[in-house]
Amino acid sequence: MKKLFFTGLLALAILSTEAQVKTPQASPAAKVEQVVGLANVQIDYSRPGAKGRTVYGDLVPYGKNWRTGANANTTISFDQDIKVNGKELKKGKYAIYTTPKADSWDVIFYTSTDNWGLPENWDETKVALRTTVKPETLMKPVESFTLSINNLTNDSASLDLAWERTIVSVPFTVPTNEVAMASIEKALAGPSYGDYFSAAQYFYQINKDLDKALTWVNKAIELVPSGSETPFWYLRLKSLIQAKSGDKKGAIASAKASLDGAKKAGNADYEKMNKDSIAEWSK
């Protein structure tokens, strides 16, 4: 009887697992990823359908805040500071809310993005930016609510919201020139001390051309900004390269300098490593 009972439980568990019903979402999730100039823009949202209903002024009332989509927050993220309709917006992730009206729309970028729809308690201090744009009438209806990035140039685009026979375009600009010029100036200025350190560390790790690794770590130390302490881990790497190259005397001198820096920084790990190395190389 006990065996039959457990067999029945097992069969019930299997049936329960297999009986999970899968159906399509009423408002399917969607993602938009777009590069604008040198900025990455990502939108995550859900797409309700009109399904024969009058949308604006009925399903979505005029004059009231709207979740701008369905389900969880519609979000947009930028990896650079941008300007929306001429207003500054810091890089980051925002929920998009709107206030549709017959002749104008307010588009709101809200810093809290973990709400289901509208926030339970609206907090005006979380409004990072609010801008007003004019809606336009579409010749052909759009069945599913659609967000897209259009009108791309090297330094601008528009965030477009389209549904039923209405489209709203929110222009924004990205700092392509500033980012490109900074990149050009950095490249023309040559590698940074961090670049030289990374290159030296890699060559040391793979045991390749230790003379070049030593040249690079020395260059990294040389390029440390005036008035700044030479990082003790730079000196540690130099000592290791010298020791592996057979220069025990130079390695000990570098390790002692690294040890002094580690003591000032209170880094016990590097203190121990340097002391152990000095003892080993002094034999």
Rank of each mutant, 00 (worst) to 15 (best):
V36L: 01
G250W: 00
P225H: 03
Y62F: 15
G37F: 05
K31V: 15
P28R: 03
S104Y: 13
L235G: 03
S148V: 05
N121M: 11
D276F: 04
T54D: 10
L223C: 03
A265W: 10
K256I: 11
F145W: 02
N71E: 15
N73C: 13
K134C: 12
D81M: 03
D79R: 01
Q80G: 00
N150K: 13
T17W: 12
A72F: 13
S254G: 12
T111A: 09
I167L: 13
V41K: 00
K275I: 11
E271L: 07
I241D: 01
L10G: 06
G190Q: 00
T99M: 12
G266W: 13
D211V: 13
A19N: 12
G37I: 04
S228Q: 14
D114H: 08
D195T: 07
K219R: 11
D276W: 07
E136Y: 09
W281L: 12
P48C: 08
A200C: 02
D106P: 02
Y97V: 08
Y270H: 10
G49N: 13
T137K: 15
T75A: 07
S258D: 07
M181W: 11
R53Q: 13
T113W: 01
E136P: 05
W163G: 00
G92S: 02
E178Y: 05
Q34H: 03
F109M: 04
L152P: 03
N218K: 14
N151M: 07
A255K: 03
N71Q: 15
T75H: 00
E143P: 09
N207F: 06
P100A: 05
I167H: 12
I278S: 06
D103Q: 13
I241H: 01
A50K: 15
G8D: 05
A70N: 01
L9T: 03
